[in-house]
Write a protein that binds this DNA or RNA. Structure first.
Lengths: 374, 374
DNA sequence: TTGAAAGCGCTAACAT
DNA sequence: ATGTTAGCGCTTTCAA
C-alpha cells in the first residue's frame, strides 16, 4: 500500500521491474509492448491501485478533454436539461464536464471563465438568455478572444452573439418563430386580448419572444396597441405577482375593450407567459383569484419543462428541446473545430397542445362549463 | 499576443524584466514584493492576458481544490437541488465543482470516480439513494479506501454507509422519520387504507420510507396486512402506471375492506407516493380516471420539489432541504477533515401541508363536493 | 524491446 | 529584493 499520497508511475515501474517509460507505454496503450512485460506492468499497477496523475499528464500532453458549462442555476428545469445534454454528450466522448453556476452575477461568471482557462478547458459553453448591455458585450468579446488565442472554443448556447465576428459558435432556438407560432395558436382559438407576461427588456431570449408575439398580432391584423407586455422578468414568483396585478388592474380600471370581448378577467382572455415557470405562477394566481383555466382565461407557456403536463391544467406550451440544445453545442463545437467559429445554428421548436387553451367566452359571466381542451 | 497556445510565466517574466520566481511570487501573493516590481509584473501579466496553468500549479502544489458530485441525473429536481447546494458551498470557498451523471449505470459511476481520482479531486460526493447489492458495497468500499489512501474524502450524501467502518462521511435525511410523520398525517385525517407507491426493494431511501410508513401504521394499531406497498420504483411514469393499475385492480376485484371504508377508488382512500415525481404521475392517473384529489382520494409525496405547490392540487409532502443537504456535505467534510471520517449526520425533515389531503369520504359515491383542503 | 533523459509550467527552497 | 535551480509525475524522443 502507498504510504502517503498517491502511487506514482515510478513505484509501479519498480514493482514491475521495468522503467517508467515502459509503464507509460503500457498504460497509454499507444505503443506496442510485448504481452509478457505488458502483463507484469498491468499486474503491478492493479496491485498498487495506481491511477495516473491527470495534471502531470495534461502538463506534458497539452491539456485534457474538458468542457465547462456556465449557467445561472442548475435548479431551473430548462438549464438542468441543457446541462444534462452537455454532460451526456461530453461523457460519451470521454470528456469531462464541469459546471459553474453564476446566480446571474457577472463577477462570478468572469471568475469561473478565468478558472476554466487556468484549468485548460477546451470548450466553454455559456448557457441561456442574458440582458445584453455594454459590459456584457465586452466580457464576451474578451472570453471569445482569450479562449481562441489558447486554442479553446467559446459556445453561446441559447443566446445570440453580440458581434458576428467573434470567434464563437452560437447554438440557439428560434425564439421569435416559437413565440409567433404559439401566439398564432391563441389567435386562432379566437383570442384578441392576449397579455405577454415576463418581458425583460434587453434580454435576448425574451425580446425575441416578445417580437414574435407582436409579429403574430400584426399578422392577424391587430394594431400595435393590442400588444400588452408586462416586464416582470422570469420566475414563478414574478409570474404570480404579475398575474395577480394584471387581474386586479383590469378589474379596478374596468375592462379594456378592443374587440368587444370581456370576461371575468377584465380585458384579457389569454396570457402568454415568457416561460413555463412564469406560467406556473400565473396559473396559481388565477386559481387564487377564483378563476379557471381555460374556461375563464387561457394560458400558454414556453419551454415545455418536464412538469408542464402536471400543471393545472396541463400546459399548452412551446417545446424547446433543451437537452438537444446542450448536446448540439458540444457536438457541433467538437465536430468541425475550425469551421465552427462564427457559425450560427438555429434549432427548431414546436407547440405542444394540452389543456390550457380554449376559445374565449363571449361576454358571458363565468359559467360552469366543463374543461374545454382545444 | 501569444503566438500559439497559452502564455507562460516565462513570457511574463521577460516582458516585466524579472525572473519567473518574481512573477510567481507576485501572482501567488504569498511573499512580499516591492510594489514597484509588483506593478511591473502585474502590468505585464495583464498586457499578455496571462493565466496560470492550473496543471503545473497542481503538480507542484499537490492537487487543487476540487469537489466531485456523482448523481444519476441532473434533471431530477431533487438531485439538481443537491448539486446546487454543493456547487454553491464549493464556490464560496473557492473550490471547483465537477458533476458526473451516471444514469444509474455502475460502470459509469466507477469510470467517473476513477477519473476524479486521476484529476485529484479531494472530495467525492455520491448523491442519492441506491439499491445496496454486494457489487455496490464492494464498489463503495473500494472508493472509500482508495480515496482515503490518497488523502481524499468520500461523502455519502442521501444514503447510509454499507459498512460503518468505512472511511466515509455520511450526510442524509431521516427518511424513516419523515415517512412516519406524513403517514401519521394521513392517519390523523382518518385514513386507514393507505397505499405506498414507489417501493424499490433494496433501495436505501425507499426502504427507509416504507419502514416509516409501516411503523406509523403499527403505531395507530393497524395490523401489518394494512400496509400495501407497490414496488414500482421512482419516476413520474412509474407513478402513473402504478396508480392506474391500482385503480383498475381495486375496481376489478372489488373493494378491499378492512375498516369498512370504501370509495370510488376501491379500497384505498389515500396514497403515499415515494417521491413527488411519483406523486405527479399518480395525480395525473387519478385525474385521468375521473376522480378528484383530495375529495375521492388523498395523495402525499416526498421531497417537496419546487413545483410541488403547482401540482393539482398543491401537494402535501415532506420537505427535505435538498440544497442544504448538498451544502452540509461539503461543509462538514471540509470543516473537520480528520474527525469527519465515519461520522454520520442526519438532517431533519418536516411536513408541508397543502391541499392534497382531506378526511376520507365514508362509503358515499363520488359526490360533487368543493375542494376540501386540510 | 526497453531504458535514459529532456522537458511540460510552475513553486519553493536555496543563493546572492 | 530577486535570481537560480531542483523537482512535481508524466510522455516522448533518442539511444542502445
Amino acid at each position: 500500500m502507498a504510504a502517503k499520497g498517491r502511487v506514482t508511475i515510478r513505484e509501479v515501474a519498480e514493482r514491475a521491474g521495468v522503467s517508467v517509460a515502459t509503464v507509460s507505454r503500457v498504460l497509454s496503450g499507444n505503443y506496442p509492448v510485448p504481452s509478457a512485460t505488458r502483463n507484469r506492468v498491468m499486474r503491478a499497477a492493479r496491485a498498487l491501485d495506481y491511477v495516473a496523475n491527470a495534471h502531470a499528464r495534461a502538463l506534458v500532453g497539452g491539456g485534457r478533454k474538458m468542457v465547462a458549462v456556465v449557467l445561472r442555476q442548475v435548479t431551473s428545469p430548462f438549464y438542468a436539461q441543457v446541462a444534462e445534454g452537455v454532460e451526456a454528450e461530453a461523457a460519451e466522448r470521454g470528456w469531462l464536464c464541469v459546471v459553474g453556476a453564476t446566480a446571474g452575477d457577472p463577477q462570478r461568471e468572469m471568475d469561473f471563465v478565468q478558472l476554466m482557462r487556468e484549468e485548460g478547458a477546451r470548450l466553454v459553453i455559456l448557457v441561456g438568455g442574458v440582458v445584453e448591455d455594454d459590459a456584457y458585450r465586452e466580457r464576451v468579446a474578451h472570453y471569445a478572444h482569450a479562449l481562441d488565442a489558447s486554442g479553446a472554443r467559446l459556445v453561446l448556447c441559447g443566446r445570440p452573439a453580440p458581434d458576428p465576428d467573434l470567434p464563437a459558435l452560437v447554438v440557439e432556438f428560434d425564439n421569435e418563430a416559437g413565440a409567433r407560432a404559439i401566439t398564432g395558436h391563441l389567435l386562432s382559438a379566437g383570442h384578441r386580448r392576449i397579455a405577454f407576461l415576463g418581458g425583460l427588456p434587453g434580454n435576448t431570449a425574451l425580446d425575441a419572444r416578445v417580437a414574435g408575439y407582436r409579429a403574430a398580432l400584426a399578422e392577424h391584423g391587430l394594431p400595435p396597441e393590442a400588444a400588452h407586455v408586462v416586464d416582470c422578468g422570469l420566475g414563478r414568483a414574478a409570474g404570480h405577482r404579475a398575474m395577480t396585478e394584471l387581474l386586479k388592474n383590469t378589474e379596478d380600471t374596468g375592462a379594456v375593450e378592443v374587440t368587444g370581448i370581456t370576461g371575468g378577467t377584465g380585458g384579457f382572455t389569454a396570457v402568454f407567459a415568457g416561460d413555463d415557470m412564469v406560467a406556473a405562477g400565473a396559473l396559481r394566481a388565477i386559481a387564487d383569484a377564483g378563476l379557471r383555466v381555460p374556461d375563464d382565461i387561457s394560458v400558454v407557456g414556453y419551454n415545455d419543462i418536464p412538469l408542464a403536463e402536471d400543471f393545472s391544467p396541463p400546459l399548452t406550451t412551446v417545446r424547446t428541446p433543451a437537452e438537444e440544445l446542450g448536446r448540439a453545442a458540444v457536438r457541433i463545437a467538437l465536430r468541425d473545430p475550425e469551421h465552427a467559429a462564427g457559425a450560427h445554428h438555429l434549432l427548431g421548436t414546436h407547440i405542444v397542445v394540452r389543456d390550457s387553451v380554449s376559445p374565449p367566452r363571449r361576454g358571458a359571466p363565468p359559467s360552469d362549463g366543463g374543461s374545454a381542451p382545444v
